[in-house]
Amino acid sequence: MATQVKVPTQEAVPPRLSMRLGLRGWVYAGRYPAERYLYILHRLSGLGLILYLPLHVWVTGRRLQGPEVWQQTMAVLSRPVFVAGEMLILAAFVFHAFNGFRLLFGHLGCALGKPAHPVYPYPVALHRQRSMTVALMVLASAFLAFGVWNLLTK
């Protein structure tokens, strides 16, 4: 008599609840320190600059259509709402550039210190960049102030 082989059946896995945060996970920094907020600002400013780029190309492209069209465009762009927009773009650019230097140093493992035996309270390497971060943000603010002053007085 042939023996019946019992084929193991795979039990149905009960449904799992996905706790993936999605966009909320990178937009909300909650109780994390400054570097986590700089991460959000860096992404937002980068996104803003990327979105501005096609507009910038379109505006400068108007120059090809003759001096009259260009004058018209410039007249539109001198309205307060566009000047304010220009300031925002400048702020995004200055912040992104200076914070980019900080990240560049970090990604190359510079100004983070060396690994060591962890002793409580545990140090976080990124905090060793704090003085550099403050210096870069002060520089960014100075550049931004100069740019805004330049925009308002031109």
């Binding site: 320190p33 986590r36 860096h42 990240l103 976080v124 390497a125 990124l126």
Partner: peptide
């Protein structure tokens, strides 16, 4: 990794 540093915190 974009160096948000939250993992280390």
């Amino acid at each position: 990794c974009h160096l948000a540093g939250a993992c280390s915190e």
